[in-house]
Nucleic acid binder design. Structure first.
Lengths: 142, 142
DNA sequence: TTGCGTGCAAACGCTTTGCATATTA
DNA sequence: TAATATGCAAAGCGTTTGCACGCAA
């Protein structure tokens, strides 16, 4: 199973409906932006991009909607820094690399980081999310 | 190599000195509390614990000192939730399990989560930190 | 006595929220 | 027309900071 990106607004609305979200104009705009491609955006970045040409969505609605989307599983919340939350439009399992120089987040496909025989001994729990974060310094392709 | 806990204040001062930190009264108090055992404390929790009996360390100093300790490698910063930063007194590599019910953080020893053949293909970088976080719901030992 | 550390209080910045208005079913 | 969503502005809250004072080398 793979995730689709670059959908049109009608298709985005359908995705929201399937996730039990009333597809209002603002919610479609936000989801349409996010689901263009796999990406990591902060609330502020989303606000700027959406309202670049004219005021489309208020700050309060952005925040309310992002939280709703996370709860409903449309996007994933990334908490790597205390500064701001990033929202990941790519919800299939994968890991992240953060370049400490730029703060940019890169996806790491699961296959690139094979983990065999995972077995969390000593902890008896229902696992909801596994997330691997790697911080480092990108080597410049000079 | 293993990390020592439960040191006395003289030993704590020595550890700070070795990490290029001037061991002042307040810094020793904070480090002494943290290095009692492997634990995860927020700034607020540290403030409360230290000043329980009488005012020992101000809030500003707690925050300044925690940041200093992180920079000098005395403790490790855990950013798992946007709410607050937790400080991990256990700096040997290990992973974390977060109980979504209580917010409590549990250590997962490396051996419990064996990862063979790690190979981050596609990314050419100097790796500074690897951190695996598992969110879940603890099964009650009813 | 000079630089570093501490602490008060105010500022900061991201996020949340109360409430009135607007929109939708 | 009842329920839900939006948006403004203010509040909230963890963290940082400016600055004056204190302390130690």
């Amino acid at each position: 199973m793979q995730q689709l990106f670059g959908l049109n607004k009608r298709e985005v609305a359908e995705i929201l409906r399937r996730k039990d979200i009333n597809p209002t104009t603002q919610r479609i705009e936000i989801a349409y932006l996010l689901l263009q491609r796999p990406q990591h955006l902060s609330a502020e970045e989303i606000l700027q991009k959406l309202n670049k040409e004219y005021e489309q969505v208020s700050q309060a609605t952005i925040y309310n909607t992002l939280r709703l989307f996370v709860d409903k599983g449309v996007i994933r919340e990334l908490v790597f820094s205390p500064d701001r939350i990033y929202y990941d439009s790519h919800i299939m399992p994968h890991h992240h690399f953060i370049d400490v120089e730029t703060g940019k987040i890169y996806d790491i496909p699961l296959e690139s980081l094979p983990m065999k025989d995972i077995n969390i001994s000593g902890i008896d729990a229902e696992v909801l999310e596994v997330s691997m974060m790697i911080k480092g310094r990108l080597n410049q392709p000079s």
